[in-house]
């Protein structure tokens, strides 16, 4: 298990709660932009990956900065 995964697996971490939140935000935001279901779903998927990817990037940076602590 990687150190980042170990961090996420800590009991009581609230990070996992952000995943469904990001999914809901992506779907609602994309639905308010377009009418076609296919387009809404593709845009929502892309936005979801962007949001989660950005959060993982921030997590990795914070983990990297905390190694020496």
């Amino acid at each position: 298990m990687t150190p980042v995964m170990t961090l996420l697996a800590v009991e009581g971490t609230t990070s996992w709660y952000l995943i469904p939140l990001a999914g809901a935000i992506s779907l609602v935001y994309s639905a308010s932009r377009f009418e076609m279901t296919d387009r809404v779903l593709r845009r929502a998927g892309r936005l979801f990956v962007t949001i989660v990817g950005f959060m993982l990037l921030v997590l990795a940076v914070l983990w990297g900065l905390s190694i020496a602590l």
Binding site: A24, I25, V28, Y29, A31, S32, R33, F34, E35, M36, D38, R39, V40
Partner: peptide, 20 residues
Amino acid sequence: LLNVLAIWDALQGPAYGYGD
């Protein structure tokens, strides 16, 4: 806050267009 987007969509339609 997300419901504000839904209200606006019901009032004015999708912001960027139909999608095609």
